[in-house]
C-alpha cells in the first residue's frame, strides 16, 4: 500500500480526493491537512510515502511547504495538484523540489497514476505544464549559447533601444546589429524583439535585480 497525505484548503476537495484514493486497492489516504503549516508534522506522524499538495493555501503556501520538506530531508514524494498553469508557478514549484505536477482538471485515473508514479520514483507532469519546462530549458540553453556580443545586444534590446542606437552604443554598423538580433531571435526561439526583451527580462533580470 502506498500511503498518501492529502493537503488542500478546501474540505470538499480533501474529501473527494480521499474518496478517489479509497476507490483503489493500492493507495491509502493516511490523512488530510487543510493548510501548509501542519504538513511537516503530519508527514512524520503518518509516515506518508506521497504528499498530494495544493499550491495556494492560507498560511504557508505549497512552494514553501515543498522547500521545508526538502530542507528537513524527508524522503517523501511530492505531487503538486493544483489549478495553476502559469510558467512561473510551475518553475517555482519544480525548482523547490516537487516530483510531479498535475492539474486538478485531470481525470481520476491520471491523478491516481500520478501518485503511483511519484511513489515509484517517476515524475508525472501534465503535458501542458511540461511544455513550459521544455521552453524554459530551451531558452536557458539559447541564452547560454549566445556570444558575449550577442548578450550585449540583447541587453540593449531589453532596455528598449532601437537598432540604430544599439549600433552607435556598440560602435558597430546597423547591419551587424540586425544580424545579431536575427541570430538572437533564432537561438531563443522567439519571433520578435519584444519577446526577446521579455525573455531577457525574465531570465537575466529576475525581479528587477541584475545579474542572474
Amino acid at each position: 500500500m502506498i500511503r498518501v497525505l492529502v493537503v488542500d484548503d478546501h474540505e470538499v476537495v480533501r474529501r473527494g480526493l480521499a474518496a478517489l484514493l479509497g476507490a483503489t486497492g493500492d493507495l491509502e489516504c493516511v490523512g488530510t491537512v487543510p493548510d501548509g503549516d501542519q504538513v511537516l508534522a503530519e508527514v512524520d506522524r503518518s509516515a506518508a510515502d506521497v504528499v498530494m499538495l495544493d499550491l495556494s493555501m492560507p498560511g504557508r503556501d505549497g512552494v514553501s511547504v515543498i522547500r521545508a520538506l526538502r530542507r528537513a530531508g524527508r524522503p517523501v514524494g511530492v505531487l503538486v495538484l493544483t489549478s495553476f498553469q502559469e510558467p512561473e508557478r510551475v518553475l517555482e514549484a519544480m525548482q523547490a523540489g516537487a516530483d510531479g505536477y498535475l492539474l486538478k482538471d485531470a481525470r481520476g485515473e491520471r491523478i491516481l497514476d500520478g501518485v503511483r508514479a511519484v511513489a515509484a520514483g517517476g515524475a508525472p507532469i501534465d503535458p501542458s505544464v511540461a511544455r513550459f519546462l521544455l521552453t524554459d530549458l530551451r531558452q536557458h540553453a539559447g541564452l547560454d549559447g549566445l556570444t558575449d556580443r550577442e548578450r550585449e545586444v540583447l541587453e540593449l534590446v531589453r532596455q528598449g533601444l532601437p537598432n540604430k542606437s544599439i549600433a552607435r552604443r556598440l560602435q558597430i554598423t546597423e547591419r551587424t546589429v540586425k544580424a545579431h538580433v536575427t541570430n538572437i531571435l533564432l537561438r531563443l526561439g522567439v519571433s520578435d524583439r519584444t519577446q526577446a526583451a521579455l525573455l531577457a527580462e525574465r531570465h537575466l533580470h529576475p525581479a528587477g535585480v541584475s545579474g542572474g
Binding site: V13, R15, G16, A19, L20, G22, G108
Partner: peptide, 14 residues
C-alpha cells in the same frame, strides 16, 4: 466544489 464532485464521481466509477 466542482472538482470535489468529479473526484467523488471518479471514485464511484473506479
Amino acid at each position: 466544489g466542482l472538482h470535489a464532485l468529479i473526484y467523488e464521481l471518479d471514485a464511484q466509477r473506479l
